[in-house]
């Protein structure tokens, strides 16, 4: 049913900063502020209205949230002071936890499969490993292809000592505690609700 508020209420409660969506006055400033706006099918304000209109699938399956470069343009311009960037990140994360997003969505894949795994594996970013994982996520052939495209740059980075030739890095000392901490945080996250 259109404008059924159950989806909106879920988002208000569970998605990061989702309760702020109520406060959007649809001025459109955010829509004009996104650097990749040409690639958004729905602008932030439209997504917000879709939430209010109960369009659960359209919102959660959308790749729009994944087009956010975290430039924070919208956040400083919104006359209603909505934390738009965080709301957009929140919707992306909510789509991820609801398993609604296409697993092959490139940014989702990079952020979840590559980046998050990379940092939680040792406690810090291993840039060389990150790059390798990124390149080889579509298989060896594609990886070599992408590696070749960037060969000159990579060589340059190596030469100027800005890329570690050894892709494996050690774990931080407190890695055990670090992992337990993350596990606990994830557990609490499931119960977390927005304050409003």
């Amino acid at each position: 049913m259109a404008y059924d508020l159950s989806f909106a209420k879920d988002v208000y409660n569970k998605s990061e900063m989702g309760h702020w969506i109520k406060m959007c006055m649809q001025c459109g400033v955010c829509a004009g502020s996104c650097p990749l706006r040409a690639h958004w099918q729905h602008s932030p304000r439209q997504l917000f209205q879709m939430v209010r209109a109960g369009k659960r699938d359209e919102v959660l399956k959308s790749s729009d949230m994944w087009m956010c470069t975290s430039c924070y343009n919208c956040i400083v311009r919104c006359p209603r002071e909505l934390p738009i960037t965080h709301i957009i990140h929140g919707l992306a994360r909510y789509a991820e936890t609801e398993k609604a997003v296409d697993p092959m969505q490139p940014t989702r894949r990079f952020a979840v499969e590559v980046f998050w795994k990379n940092i939680t594996a040792t406690g810090r970013v291993g840039e060389a490993m990150l790059t390798m994982r990124l390149y080889f996520q579509d298989g060896i052939g594609a990886g070599i292809q992408r590696g070749l495209e960037m060969r000159d740059s990579a060589l340059g980075m190596l030469k100027t000592r800005r890329l570690n030739p050894i892709p494996f890095r050690g774990k931080i000392k407190g890695y055990d505690g670090f992992t337990k901490m993350l596990a606990k945080a994830a557990e609490l996250e499931a119960k977390l609700e927005n304050k409003a």
């Binding site: 508020l5 406060m23 209603r80």
Partner: peptide, 24 residues
């Protein structure tokens, strides 16, 4: 269009907070 003369923008916010859904 929503018109909020005087100080009524704050009232508009309040109604949004309370869950009023605005559809243009």
């Amino acid at each position: 269009e929503i018109r909020t003369p005087g100080q009524m923008e704050d009232f508009y916010r309040k109604v949004q907070e309370e869950g009023g859904v605005f559809i243009k």
